[in-house]
Amino acid sequence: MATGQATLRQAGAARARRRFPRPLGAYAYLLPASLLLAAFQVYPLFYGAYVSLHRWGLVPGEFVGLANYRAVLADPDFWHSLLVTLFYVLGTVPVEMILGFALAWLLFQPIRGRALFRLLYFLPYVTSMVALGLVWSWIFNANFGLLNALLRLLHLAPLNWLLEPRGILTLLRGGTHLEPWTGGPSLALLCVAAVTVWYYAGLHAVVYLAGLSAVPREVLEAARIDGAAGWRLLRRVILPLLSPTTYFLAVVATVGAFQSFALVYTLTAPSGGGAAGGPLETTKVVTLYIFNAFYSEFRVGYAQAAAFLLFVLLLGLTLLQMRFAARRVTYLGGLQGGNEP
């Protein structure tokens, strides 16, 4: 009897594993996607390395070894753009995550209209960054913008918002001069960061809400019966259960913030035309630096070398996050289905 069941189970497993035995046909199904991925994702990786090792302007030039990499690392503007990016990442990622979680927690309560709220929070994420960037530029406009109109109505001094190169610490101290390091990120960069947070908080809320909804009711009930409520429930039960979601969002958001282009570009491109990243390059994040070297200065090999350096930096950062997470992220067998990276 027992052996009979075992054979049956074996037969079932074997049958489940068996697929259509048509090897050549299978490659035909894979061909279109493989071809495109190979041509535009894999090959560029190697070709990019080749480009970065050559003097490459409007036309390909001679092999120069690591000279492009050395030149990037020796350029103070590159390091400045990394500092700007660091301010930007620190000003966006944690805020997005906290706001996203707060909204998700509110949405998780027994409320009416959850679908409508969720839809509204999600709206920016499906909308063009160029259009929204222009709307925010209009709101931040120093002459006719809504924010300065509100300040005027409150009898407060107007601000230059996206045109303000002075650091926020300088402004808080009432300083009038530009302080390169001690002034902190410029008010313009803070505006860009605020718009970024506005754009992504809803996405984080939706992903967190999916994580919260995947927590089994029994776990929450058991925690309640054991007397966990309010803050303690959140701190001791919910947040640890959501740690895979938090980890996933932190990695994706950090990498995304290092790569953001369209919003920063639209918000800081001067209206008369010209290079984005102003005022006084205080919003020139590293992607703008690379884009500028490539698109405006035609230093193709140089820009590619900078892109590889950014890639190495991001890889290192992700590995760091992984090591940090290994100690803190708790997986509860399959709870977070679909959300593990």
Partner: peptide
């Protein structure tokens, strides 16, 4: 694994291609 290749790396080679 191609998901790990970031867009800023492929941008210029794709343009040249």
């Amino acid at each position: 694994a191609t998901l790990l290749v970031p867009p800023e790396i492929t941008l210029i080679p794709d343009f040249v291609l």
